[in-house]
Amino acid sequence: MVIPTTAYTRRQLTVYFLKLGTFGFGGPPALVSAMYRDLVQDRRWIDEADYREGVALAQLAPGPLAAQLAIYLGYVHYGVLGATFVGVAFVLPSFLMVLALGWAYVRFGGLPWMQAMFYGVGAAVIGLIAIGTYKLTTKTVAKDGLSWGLFIVSAVVTVVMESELLWLVIGSGILYWFVKASPYRLPGRTGNVWAPVLTQLLAIPTDSVLWKLAIFFTKAGVFVFGSGLAIVPFLYGGVVKEYGWLTEQQFLDAVAVAMITPGPVVITVAFIGYLVAGFWGAVVAALATFLPCYLLTVLPAPYFKKYGKHPGIKAFVDGVTIAAVGAIAGAVVVLARRQLVDLPAVGIALVTILLLYRFKKLPELGVIAAAAIIGILLRQAL
Rank of each mutant, 00 (worst) to 15 (best):
M161R: 12
M161G: 04
M161Q: 11
M161K: 01
M161H: 10
E162T: 07
E162H: 12
E162Y: 01
S163P: 08
S163Y: 11
S163L: 15
S163V: 14
S163N: 11
S163M: 13
E164D: 11
E164C: 08
E164K: 01
E164Y: 02
E164W: 00
L165T: 13
L165F: 13
L165P: 06
L166A: 12
L166M: 07
L166R: 02
L166K: 02
W167A: 14
W167G: 13
W167K: 00
W167T: 08
L168T: 05
V169P: 03
I170R: 13
I170W: 05
G171H: 01
G171K: 10
G171Q: 12
G171T: 14
S172Y: 07
S172I: 01
S172A: 15
S172W: 00
S172P: 13
G173E: 01
G173T: 01
G173C: 02
I174T: 05
I174L: 15
L175S: 07
L175E: 12
Y176M: 13
Y176D: 14
Y176G: 09
Y176H: 15
W177H: 05
W177E: 15
W177P: 02
F178Q: 05
V179P: 11
K180T: 07
K180C: 08
K180Y: 09
K180H: 05
K180L: 04
K180I: 10
K180Q: 15
A181Y: 01
A181C: 00
A181F: 00
A181N: 03
S182Q: 03
S182D: 15
P183T: 06
P183H: 02
P183F: 00
Y184S: 13
Y184Q: 11
Y184R: 10
R185V: 13
L186R: 10
L186E: 08
L186G: 07
L186N: 15
P187M: 13
P187E: 08
P187H: 11
P187D: 12
G188C: 09
G188L: 06
G188K: 08
G188W: 08
R189P: 14
R189M: 15
R189I: 06
R189Y: 14
R189F: 15
R189Q: 09
T190M: 10
T190I: 15
T190C: 14
T190L: 10
T190K: 12
G191S: 01
G191I: 03
G191R: 05
G191M: 08
G191F: 02
N192C: 06
N192I: 07
N192P: 03
N192A: 14
V193Q: 00
V193R: 04
V193K: 02
W194T: 05
W194R: 08
W194N: 04
W194Q: 08
A195R: 12
A195G: 11
A195P: 00
P196D: 05
P196C: 02
P196A: 02
V197R: 05
V197Y: 00
V197A: 03
L198F: 14
L198P: 13
T199C: 00
T199I: 08
T199N: 10
Q200C: 04
Q200W: 14
L201H: 05
L201I: 04
L201P: 06
L201N: 03
L201E: 07
L202H: 04
A203T: 05
A203Q: 14
A203C: 02
A203R: 03
I204E: 13
I204H: 09
I204W: 11
P205R: 14
P205F: 14
P205N: 08
P205A: 15
T206V: 09
S208R: 12
V209R: 12
V209G: 01
V209A: 11
V209T: 03
